[in-house]
């Protein structure tokens, strides 16, 4: 049996970071956490996670948008699947699910808070499978 897939959660809200970490750990994932965008990007570079769960609208100077931009413009990182999460969606006129058309800011999936955990789990598994095919991860 290989190592469990590694998921990085980036969220500046400690409550949400802890609850999501608990949820993913209990579903068999190896979980890393970062409470701001800069720490998140450093962990992505250092640990090369199999998937990133990213809060888009963090109150930190380096937001989820910046993380996304940095990952997508880095040839070594841009195949890491990113699932974006935010409390802002339609009411700001932001149609984040359409960002897939734009390489610069693209997230692979988008979930609006409060997140449906079971659905999220399902989509994480789908994304991880796609990642295996795309990248041929030896441990998965």
């Amino acid at each position: 049996m290989g190592k469990p897939p590694k998921i990085l959660i980036v969220d500046d809200n400690q409550d949400l970071l802890f609850t999501m970490e608990t949820f993913l750990k209990r579903n068999g994932f190896d979980v890393l956490t970062a409470d701001d965008g800069q720490k998140g990007l450093a962990l992505i570079k250092e640990s090369h996670p199999d998937l990133v769960l990213l809060d888009i609208m963090m109150e930190t100077t380096f937001s989820g948008l910046d993380v996304c931009k940095a990952v997508r413009s880095d040839a070594d990182l841009n195949d890491i699947p990113i699932i974006g999460i935010s409390g802002i969606g339609d009411e700001m006129g932001i149609q984040i699910d359409k960002w897939g058309d734009d390489d610069y800011f693209s997230v692979d999936e988008f979930f609006e808070k409060p997140v449906d955990r079971e659905k999220l789990l399902e989509r994480i598994k789908v994304r991880l499978k796609k990642g295996v095919i795309k990248r041929g991860h030896p441990d998965l």
Binding site: N13, T19, F23, S86, G87, I88, P114, R117
Partner: peptide, 15 residues
């Protein structure tokens, strides 16, 4: 946005 974050907190905390 804030309310959704808090609802997420309530939901996550309950979990």
């Amino acid at each position: 946005h804030d309310m959704k974050n808090m609802l997420e907190g309530v939901q996550g905390g309950s979990y």
